[in-house]
Structure formats: structure tokens, C-alpha cells
């Protein structure tokens, strides 16, 4: 992570955001804080949504990427529908997650990041999500002991026949893998 300056991150980031529908509006943020006030998780974020844009302008995106902020975004789109400058802020958060993963600047232990990675792994394998396997991967990679706290719920689910032990692999999986590989060749984002 050494060598990547906050300011060059800002540049790369803005280039991507400007390509999004309505993306150019990010330059028009008036720092009103409507996003932060509407965000269900901002009180637990180290940088609130409004502060993310302030940090971007100050060339300090690297700090944001290292913080818990972006991984606390649940994609609820409240900021997006309420922003007076029409900034697609949820997409801004998505861009930041991908930027952090690309430059390997993200809180490695952050459970949300672990979950997202585990999810993509399961989907690459089967073409679909497989709950049991996802949960297994997630707890193994984060905190295996936490699964004990879920035992009662697991038993309840079992009694309602709501646990599916057998992942389903789509029959076009090879075909899907070729598509994914081709998308990667074209430059991943």
C-alpha cells in the first residue's frame, strides 16, 4: 500500500465516478450532510458519508479506505434519493469498495469485506449462492467461535427444514466462467 497517495487515489476514483450515470454531480457536493443524516449506519462509521467527499477533496481517500466506513454501507440508497445535488452516493460507496480491494487498502479483518469476498467465491464455484457454504466460509475466515452463538437459530431452522446442505451448480457454469474470464480480460473494475 506504500506508494499510493491519497491524491492519486482521488484522481483514479473520480475518473470512474464521472462515468457513472449522474456521476459528474459529485463535483457539486455542497457538504449539506443530508446523506449522513439519512444513513442508517453513519453513527457507527469512522467517516460519515459527507466526510467521505470532504476527504476526497482533501486528497485523503486512503484514510477513508482504511476505515470501517465504506464496508458499513448496506446499499440502502437513502443518501442517493435524498441528495440535493443528485449524487449517486451509493454507487460512490461501491466504487470505494472496489478501489480499496484493487489497491489492497481495506481493513482485512473487516467482517463485511470478508463476507463480500466469501460470497464472490461461492458464486464463482456454483454460479449461485449456497447459504450453508457461504456461512461456513464466512465464519472460518472471520471468527469461527462466533458460529456457536448461532446454534439455537440453526436448530430452529433445521426443525423447519430450512437448511439446504446441497449446493446447486448451474449447468451452464463453464459457459459462465468463460464470460467472467472475458470480462476480466477487458480490464476489471
Amino acid at each position: 500500500m506504500a506508494g499510493i497517495k491519497g491524491s492519486s487515489l482521488s484522481e483514479e476514483f473520480l475518473e470512474h465516478v464521472h462515468q457513472l450515470p449522474q456521476g459528474k454531480s459529485i463535483d457539486k457536493c455542497i457538504q449539506c450532510g443530508t446523506c449522513s443524516g439519512s444513513c442508517p449506519t453513519s453513527s457507527a462509521m469512522e467517516y460519515s458519508p459527507r466526510e467521505v467527499i470532504a476527504a476526497l477533496r482533501a486528497g485523503m481517500l486512503d484514510r477513508v479506505l482504511r476505515s470501517n466506513t465504506i464496508w458499513f454501507c448496506t446499499s440502502c440508497y437513502y443518501c442517493t434519493v435524498r441528495c440535493p445535488a443528485k449524487i449517486p452516493f451509493t454507487d460512490v460507496m461501491y466504487e470505494l469498495k472496489r478501489l480499496g480491494i484493487k489497491h489492497k487498502i481495506y481493513p482485512r479483518k473487516d467482517t463485511n469485506a470478508v463476507m463480500s469476498k466469501a460470497f464472490t467465491d461461492v458464486v464463482s464455484k456454483y454460479g449461485r449462492n449456497a447459504e450453508t457454504e457461504l456461512v461456513k466460509k464466512y465464519y472460518l475466515r472471520s471468527n469461527p467461535f462466533k458460529v456457536l452463538g448461532q446454534l439455537k437459530l440453526v436448530m430452529k431452522m433445521l426443525s423447519r427444514h430450512r437448511v439446504d446442505f446441497f449446493p446447486h451448480r448451474i449447468s451452464g457454469i463453464e459457459n459462465l466462467r468463460r464470460m467472467i474470464a472475458a470480462a476480466q480480460e477487458n480490464g476489471e473494475r
Binding site: S75, Y94, I101, V123, M179, I180, E188
Partner: peptide, 25 residues
């Protein structure tokens, strides 16, 4: 027939283009 994962939030957070490929299939 033979639908695949939609590429929902958790996938979109890691790879945008690949998530869109999942949708597009």
C-alpha cells in the same frame, strides 16, 4: 432455465463488471 446468481450487493462490492455479467447472462 438455468438462471445464475444476480450479482447482488455483496458481489457488486468486489467486482462491478463481473456483477453486471452475472446480471446480463
Amino acid at each position: 432455465d438455468d438462471w445464475n446468481c444476480c450479482g447482488a450487493s455483496a458481489y457488486m462490492s468486489v467486482h462491478e463488471k463481473r456483477a453486471f455479467v452475472l446480471c446480463a447472462r
